[in-house]
C-alpha cells in the first residue's frame, strides 16, 4: 500500500498476512507493459518499488528491513512470481545486518524466499552482502523454480554473499551459526492439458542445483576456530547464472577463468612461457581475490573469496558487467541488455 508503484496492484488486505511475509508478482500486460500485479509485505519486511520509467526494461524492487537489520526471531518469507516476459531485479540498500541471538534458546533469524520464473522471464538478485554480527544465528533459504529448463528461457542471475561481520568492532567470523542455501528446481505440470498458463497447476520438480554453505562458529576443528578456518578471507560470494539471455555472459566468465594466471612453482607474473597477464587479472590477484567457476548441470556457478570487501566488489562487478582487459565495462553487457542500466548499485 505504501509502495509508490504506478501499476494497478490488487493487494489483499495487509493485515491478513503474517509478520515478515511478502509477495511480489510481476505481470506483463499487453502489449508489453511491465506491472507489479501484486506487491505486499508486513513488518519486519519492507518492499519498495520505484516507479519505473517508461522505457525501463525491468522492474526493480528493494527488499528492506526496518532499522537496516534483522534481530533474532525475525522471520522473513518472501514469495516472488515473474510471469512470462517479465523482468525483475531485487536489490537491497546496504548490507543485511544480522544482530546477535538474544539468548542461546532464542530462535534464529530466518529469511526465506521462493521465486517462480516462468518461461521467457528473467530474474536478477543483486543484494548487498549479508553481514552476520558476533553471536548471530542466521538461516537463509532461497528457492528458485525455473519453469522452462528445456529451452532455458527462465533466466536468472543470483548473487549471494556474506562478510565477516563488523570488522571495526573486531568481529571476524564471530558469528554463532550461518547457513545459506540456494536451491534451483525444475517445475513439472500436474495438469498437462493447460500447458503452463499463469495458474498454479505446476509444482516443484527435480532439484537441479543446490549450493549450501554452513558456517558453524561453535565448532572447533582441531583447535582451529571458524575465523582461523577461513584463512583470512573476509568475504565469500557465490553467483549462479542460467538462461538464454546470459549465454554471452557465461561464455565471457568461462573464458576469463580459463585465462586465469597459472599457479605454480614459478612466479606467475614473470612466467615467460605463459601469456602476458592483463590489468584486471593482476589487480584481482593483488587484491587477494580468489575465484573459481564451474559449469554444473546447466548452470554456471562462480565462487569468489577475498581478503577485503572492496576488491571482491570490484571483481564481481567486473565479471557481471563483462569488463574488457583494461577494466572498462562492455557496452551492452548481457545484464544491462536484459534489465537496463543501474543494476549494479550493490557493487558500487
Amino acid at each position: 500500500m505504501e509502495s509508490n508503484t504506478t501499476t494497478a496492484s490488487t493487494p489483499p488486505s495487509q493485515s491478513s498476512i503474517p509478520a515478515g511475509d511478502g509477495l511480489i508478482h510481476v505481470r506483463v500486460l499487453p502489449p508489453s507493459k511491465l506491472t507489479l500485479h501484486r506487491l505486499n509485505y508486513k513488518y519486519p519486511l519492507k518492499l519498495i518499488s520505484p516507479a519505473p520509467s517508461q522505457w525501463a526494461k525491468s522492474l526493480t524492487v528493494f527488499v528492506l528491513s526496518y532499522g537496516g537489520g534483522l534481530v533474532s526471531g525475525d522471520e522473513v518469507n518472501l514469495r516472488v512470481v515473474v510471469e512470462r516476459g517479465g523482468r525483475l531485479c531485487l536489490q537491497t540498500q546496504g548490507s543485511t545486518k544480522i544482530f546477535k541471538q538474544k539468548t542461546p534458546s532464542s530462535p534464529p533469524t530466518i529469511q526465506r524466499m521462493t521465486v517462480r520464473i516462468q518461461p521467457g522471464a528473467s530474474f536478477l538478485l543483486l543484494p548487498d552482502p549479508v553481514q552476520p554480527f558476533a553471536e548471530s544465528n542466521y538461516v537463509q533459504h532461497q528457492i528458485f523454480e525455473l519453469e522452462d529448463t528445456v529451452n532455458d528461457t527462465s533466466s536468472i542471475v543470483v548473487l549471494d554473499w556474506v562478510t565477516e561481520g563488523r570488522a571495526a568492532r573486531d568481529e571476524h567470523w564471530s558469528l554463532k551459526r550461518f547457513e545459506s542455501r540456494n536451491e534451483f528446481f525444475g517445475v513439472k505440470n500436474i495438469d498437462a492439458v493447460d500447458g503452463g498458463s499463469a495458474g498454479g497447476e505446476s509444482v516443484r520438480g527435480r532439484l537441479l542445483l543446490r549450493d549450501a554453505m554452513i558456517l558453524d562458529g561453535e565448532m572447533l576443528c582441531g583447535d582451529e576456530t571458524l575465523r582461523e578456518r577461513q584463512d583470512s578471507q573476509t568475504i565469500f560470494a557465490t553467483a549462479v547464472i542460467r538462461g538464454k539471455p546470459f549465454t554471452r555472459l557465461i561464455g565471457y566468465i568461462k573464458t576469463r577463468y580459463a585465462n586465469e594466471p597459472r599457479i605454480g612453482q614459478k612466479r606467475w607474473d614473470t612466467d615467460d612461457d605463459s601469456r602476458r597477464h592483463n590489468r584486471i587479472e593482476v589487480e584481482a590477484r593483488d587484491n587477494g581475490v580468489l575465484w573459481a567457476a564451474s559449469s554444473v548441470r546447466g548452470f554456471l556457478l562462480v565462487k569468489v573469496s577475498g581478503v577485503e570487501m572492496e576488491g571482491v566488489k570490484r571483481f564481481v562487478k567486473g565479471l557481471l558487467s563483462e569488463v574488457d582487459e583494461d577494466g572498462v565495462q562492455r557496452e551492452g553487457g548481457c545484464i544491462a541488455e536484459e534489465f537496463g542500466t543501474g543494476m549494479f548499485r550493490c557493487l558500487e
Binding site: I214, R229, S294
Partner: peptide
C-alpha cells in the same frame, strides 16, 4: 541439511585446474 562447512576447500579444489603443473 548437508552443505559446505569449509568454503575455502571448494575454492582450493576448484582452482586445481589452474595449477601450472
Amino acid at each position: 541439511e548437508a552443505g559446505q562447512s569449509v568454503p575455502t576447500v571448494d575454492l582450493w579444489q576448484g582452482r586445481h585446474e589452474r595449477l601450472y603443473t
